[in-house]
Design a protein around this nucleic acid. Structure first.
Lengths: 208, 208
DNA sequence: CGGGACCTTGGTCCTAGGACCATCGGACCG
DNA sequence: CGGTCCGATGGTCCTAGGACCAAGGTCCCG
């Protein structure tokens, strides 16, 4: 077979990338052409390798999956992006779908189903859960994490892990004052009262 | 080499099990003798295969990792259990360690470090983060919602909904001072730093 | 090229959160 | 009957959180 589907695998855990690679390489018509461990690397590898399909995790340190996805879409990269997620709420994948993902699968997908999903999106199909499709069709804006800037999302992720401003400053290499400014902006954008509510939001949105 | 360390891999995601298997099988002295996808299967496979080390995820559908661990300990199975977790708070792994785990690693561990950890626990060592070791040594019973009094659980439930002390006071018909006293007791019993972490805990514990 | 968005940082100020300490009443158990 | 635990409440004090304001640099887009 001359034209195999070329797949880029993006996940921050090497064991997950390895597992995905093992799943896919036993399929005659699929080929893993590369891996990336964060969003930034995902964009550069996608531009360099021009895969047909990108399997994209959302939660990654540094540049996350949604930001990477936006970047790929902005650059007009021709790959079809299939999100791999362990999240169950529509809020987690909605930003990704709005940013250009053509579908998503859960991390407990079995190998034949994963392969079928890849083939399906490669053919141009879209794979969405009815709940997600409905929310999209209703144009529900809501407390949309997509409206946060990339840095704000990083800070929100840390809040969702129960970190103090000082701990977040240390983790992200920022001044505490900078973190406070981001926190204030996040609270305003999400329409929540304090960091506890923001943390709960982050968990529900699958950011933490 | 005649005596390789026999390892059982327990995780609900097949791709993670596959990834772990790939990581470990390139080591001459390690052998993956089986896999399990939930806690119940983990116990039965451990009893059947008698592995030296069990790599155990905690969050699994059905019987979770801590429950499985307790069962293995109760049956006197001789295996050493190394928890694989994506949690960062001591509260997440404390129950597992109390139930008999001899250490834990994070899911972003790299292959040589994972192999080294397995060898280490196989030799009888214990691998614990200083925070976790300290909490254990202080005899802090730990993150067990059952140890909270009924009133504390009510307050924790409200915290898990993002309520302020004043709002909780109003909702439960108490003085704000009373709520603060309960909050302080809750934080101490759960071993968390502030109400945000308590709220996240409540969500994970299914109280909110 | 200028405007806007994002990121970063600092200052000031106020309040909620929480630690620590203390006290009292009721219920339960040895 | 006394001790312990739970629940309730108050006082004092300190700090983290967060609002508000300001400013500068970088990048992108019209």
């Amino acid at each position: 077979m001359t034209d195999r589907i070329r797949v880029l695998v993006v996940d921050d855990h090497a064991m997950v990338r390895q597992g995905l690679r093992s799943f896919l390489e036993v399929q005659d018509d699929l080929e893993v052409v590369g891996e990336a461990a964060d969003g930034s690397e995902a964009v550069s590898r996608a531009a360099e390798l021009l895969p047909d399909v990108v399997l994209l995790d959302l939660r990654m340190p540094g540049v996350d999956g949604v930001t990477a996805l936006r970047e790929m879409t902005a650059r007009g990269l021709p790959c079809r992006v299939l999100v791999i997620t362990s999240f169950t709420e529509p809020a987690a994948v909605l930003p990704a779908v709005r940013a250009g993902a053509v579908g998503y699968v859960y991390k407990d997908v079995d190998p034949p189903a994963l392969a079928a999903a890849i083939r399906s999106v490669h053919l141009g199909h879209t794979l969405l859960h009815p709940d997600v499709a409905r929310v999209l069709s209703e144009g529900e804006p809501g407390a949309d994490p997509a409206r946060l800037t990339p840095r704000e999302r990083q800070v929100l992720t840390e809040i969702g892990r129960g970190r103090s401003n000082r701990e977040i400053a240390r983790a992200l290499g920022l001044a505490e004052k900078t973190v406070k400014a981001h926190v204030s902006a996040i609270l305003a954008k999400l329409g929540v009262q304090d960091r506890t509510q923001a943390a709960l939001y982050a968990v529900r949105a699958g950011l933490a």
